[in-house]
Design a protein around this nucleic acid. Structure first.
Lengths: 230, 230
DNA sequence: CCAAATAATATGTGCATACATAATATCTAA
DNA sequence: TTAGATATTATGTATGCACATATTATTTGG
């Protein structure tokens, strides 16, 4: 990282913002000025400033210029890992255990998420993810069979459905929600915790273009945390 | 967005990856080739590919080339809002209510987080955030007085400590953790829920350079979810 | 006086080029 | 044979330039 690199300049400017050189909401010098000051091309300053804007630290508008944000947006990024990797990262041995595998009419909430016709059938799976044989998380998943037909023949005792699907449709998009809920009878039994225990839950729905592939809830054992830098 | 813009090219390449044109793990054509194919400068392809790498879809190494990731990292991004804004976005009226304001010796866990000497004193605040008068979230916060001295004179009945601190040290960094836990007596009373109810919790520590400013836990009422796109 | 046309301006982006850098492949000498 | 030097190559990035675009300021015409 050179003295005049866009990264160096970005950090220098970040410093100046942190130090309060420009008040929150204030107009910063234009790209041309900064380029002059740092003895570099405007392109380079542009890149530095765009990066700071991505970070939510400044706000840029054509013709209007660049200002320091009044209230910088705190943006957290989480890498959502494969459970296998998550478990293996702790040094434990991973094994999925399939508790339920049925093809039944999907409840309305699920049908809506998978864009199924009401009363269409879907694959319903329940899995406990084990770390060194002990329950680590409980997964309740519905799969749109039309969108992933091969799953009926997949060896789900060995590879978790999550992993299998990821191999099939690796570059899908989706949405995630984080929440908490008390353990119901299923979760309680699967995770070996008291009913009503507070569980951290990740709720995901995944699609590839317009094919809604799967929706699932992942219930972690009490005490699980997910963390990140801001 | 032009046909030959870096964004257009990025999306075109994203499509080609999604469609499976290049297998997971496979080597993609080099920048020069793609530039040739898309009839644009290598710089433009470079920008498109860097963006896809940021998204965790591909992996790039000098000399070795660019490959499609075997298992793309699912990266969720959350904008963590001010509670005031979060509440007001629902159309409700926001009001913070300060329950506790004391300067006492910080417990070890807190002292560690704020990098305080053991048995140093810190400001301890407990606040209920109200939406239209009803409890929305409960905040338990510790502030390093040395790092934010003005807070002792701040009108915390009107502006929440969070907001006040954000005004003072707007460009701080920090870490965030999400978890779940049962409501204890304090949370139960403040949020008006049963003891043991499953609460979604955001746990944050904030610092500016080497000054650790504040650490807090935010307990949401049952049912709260945080969501995002992947 | 006000609305619409027009000019001015800061950021946004593409391009050709040159060189930097990291990783790999190949050659060379003991 | 093999460690070490050297060449090769794909990505990384800085630069000067031109032009695009969004937004604000100014002018103009009714």
């Amino acid at each position: 990282m050179n003295e005049r690199s866009h990264q160096a300049i970005r950090e220098a400017i970040r410093e100046r913002i942190s130090s309060g050189e420009w008040a929150p909401g204030a107009l910063m010098p234009g790209e041309a000025n900064l380029a002059d000051e740092y003895q570099c091309a405007r392109t380079t300053v542009n890149r530095a400033l765009q990066s700071l804007a991505e970070d939510g630290l400044i706000e840029r508008k054509r013709r209007a210029g660049t200002r320091v944000k009044e209230i910088p947006v705190k943006r957290a990024r989480f890498d959502i890992p494969l459970i296998r990797q998550e478990v293996e990262a702790t040094g434990a041995q991973y094994r999925p255990h399939l508790l339920l595998h049925e093809i039944i009419e999907a409840p309305d909430a699920v049908a809506a998420r998978l864009r199924l016709k009401t009363s269409a059938r879907a694959l319903h799976l329940q899995t406990v993810h084990l770390a060194d044989g002990a329950p680590y998380a409980f997964e309740d998943r519905w799969v749109n069979i039309d969108a992933a037909p091969g799953i009926l023949d997949a060896p789900l005792e060995e590879v978790s459905a999550n992993e299998w699907l990821l191999k099939q449709v690796p570059y899908s998009s989706g949405d995630v929600a984080f929440t908490a809920a008390p353990a119901g009878p299923r979760e309680s039994a699967a995770l070996d915790v008291a009913e009503g225990a507070a569980l951290f839950i990740i709720d995901r729905t995944t699609w590839l273009e317009d094919r809604h592939v799967t929706t699932m809830k992942l219930f972690y054992r009490p005490g699980h945390t997910l963390h990140s830098r801001v």
